[in-house]
């Protein structure tokens, strides 16, 4: 198993997940995530080198449907739920030229 999760790791992960954490939250989450990951270390003893991973419990492949037109969601109804709309599109603040 990798090294114990650090406060810096948690800050980095929060950044990846687009979450802003306070110092208190950082502290608390570091301890709580470490406890869960410690518990998960019990799988370390298992030899699974030759075991294939399971990503999905039901083996379904190539699920296709007939290529026919069916009703889709009503545009006005969908846009009515958006925080901001302009010209039938979702409106957002500027994003180009900014650091993420």
């Amino acid at each position: 198993m990798p090294q114990k999760i650090t406060r810096d790791d948690v800050a980095h992960v929060a950044d990846l997940a687009r979450l802003a954490l306070s110092d208190d939250e950082l502290e608390q989450f570091t301890g709580q995530l470490a406890a869960v990951l410690d518990h998960a270390a019990d799988v370390e003893a298992l030899d699974v080198a030759d075991v294939p991973p399971t990503s999905h419990p039901v083996p379904l492949e190539n699920v296709l449907r007939d290529d026919v037109v069916t009703p889709s969601l009503d545009r006005a109804e969908v846009l009515a739920q958006a925080p901001a709309v302009e010209d039938d599109r979702f409106r957002v603040p500027p994003s180009l030229g900014q650091e993420p």
């Binding site: 990951l37 298992l46 699974v48 075991v51 991973p53 399971t54």
Partner: peptide, 14 residues
């Protein structure tokens, strides 16, 4: 180490 291993453990359980 984490997600990949967990998926293999899922296979063991099955």
């Amino acid at each position: 180490a984490y997600y990949g291993k967990a998926q293999k453990v899922r296979t063991l359980i099955i």
